[in-house]
């Protein structure tokens, strides 16, 4: 009884800021301008323009997630192997940029990468050819990796820290060399961290429109940009909501699949 009372404010705020907006998205997504039920906003994903933006977003965010993983894993291992105070200092250096505004960080990259930006000025000064990165998919991937890398490092770091060194020692004791001990013990034991890292990078990368707007110019449209434009420029909330629902379903579908395969992995092991 008491506990229920205590959670009342929380329920109130989540109703106000999560449930109601969600209901509104669903309402707009499944109705047309006259308020009549329709599936056309959902089906709009199939138009060439929208599906291209969708697949472009999937492609770039997948690529970013993979790059993040391969950068983050060794980093997390180095961090986890450092002992004592130094490790928390270095971990802090990683978290520090996260306290800076996301928009600001991305704008900083724009300044660096621009045709007449900092990097090209330095390259010019050294007599080297200028780089043409800005407004390419590469720039977007760079922005995604830079912004989301800590979200991959931290969960993997956490799970690695929890692995008892004696479990690794046991593997070595039973005849495994360092590579075998890593593949058979460290890696499988860190799977939960990897999965949460992937989710925490892939989802925001898939839905971002800020990074693609700032670093991709107006040349590359991701599904996030399309949805944003429907809301802020075209003013077609119905279409924007419909596409959002599709994106949401895609993410939920993926998470369910990964949860199931994870469980199956467990039962296979039995």
């Amino acid at each position: 009884m008491n506990k229920k009372l205590l959670s009342a404010p929380f329920l109130f705020w989540s109703a106000l800021f999560i449930i109601i907006p969600l209901c509104m998205v669903f309402y707009y997504g499944f109705t047309d301008k006259d308020g009549a039920f329709t599936l056309s906003n959902i089906m709009a994903i199939a138009t060439p323009e929208h599906s291209k933006a969708f697949f472009e977003a999937v492609k770039l965010s997948l690529l970013s997630t993979v790059i993040c993983f391969f950068l983050a894993y060794p980093l997390a291992m180095i961090l986890a192997n450092l002992k004592g105070k130094r490790s928390s200092l270095i971990a802090l250096i990683f978290i520090l940029p996260m306290w800076m505004n996301f928009l600001l960080r991305t704008l900083a990259w724009q300044t660096l990468l621009e045709k007449t930006g900092v990097i090209n000025s330095i390259l010019g000064f050294l007599g080297l050819p200028a780089l043409n990165i800005i407004n390419t998919p590469g720039a977007i991937v760079l922005g995604m990796v830079y912004n989301f890398l800590p979200f991959m490092v931290l969960p993997i770091y956490n799970v690695l820290c929890k692995i008892d060194v004696n479990v690794l020692n046991a593997a070595r004791d039973l005849g495994a060399n360092e590579a075998q001990a890593f593949l058979k013990v460290t890696l499988p034991l860190s799977v939960p961290g990897i999965i949460s890292g992937i989710t925490m990078v892939f989802v925001p990368a898939l839905t971002t429109f800020v990074i693609s707007t700032i670093l991709g110019g107006s040349k590359i449209l991701l599904i996030g940009n399309v949805i944003e434009q429907e809301f802020t420029q075209t003013g077609n909330w119905h279409l924007g909501s419909g596409l959002s629902i599709v994106l949401m379903m895609f993410i939920i579908f993926n998470m369910v699949i990964s949860a199931i395969t994870d469980k199956e992995g467990d039962t296979n092991a039995l």
Binding site: V167, A170, D173, N177, A269
Partner: peptide, 25 residues
């Protein structure tokens, strides 16, 4: 010699079983 090259085995203070594997594994 590294541990994996020694013809001896250790039973650790806190078991140190592989929690992601079955008993047989």
């Amino acid at each position: 010699l590294p541990p994996n090259k020694r013809n001896l085995n250790t039973v650790f203070q806190k078991y140190a079983l592989f929690t992601h594997m079955s008993i047989a594994e």
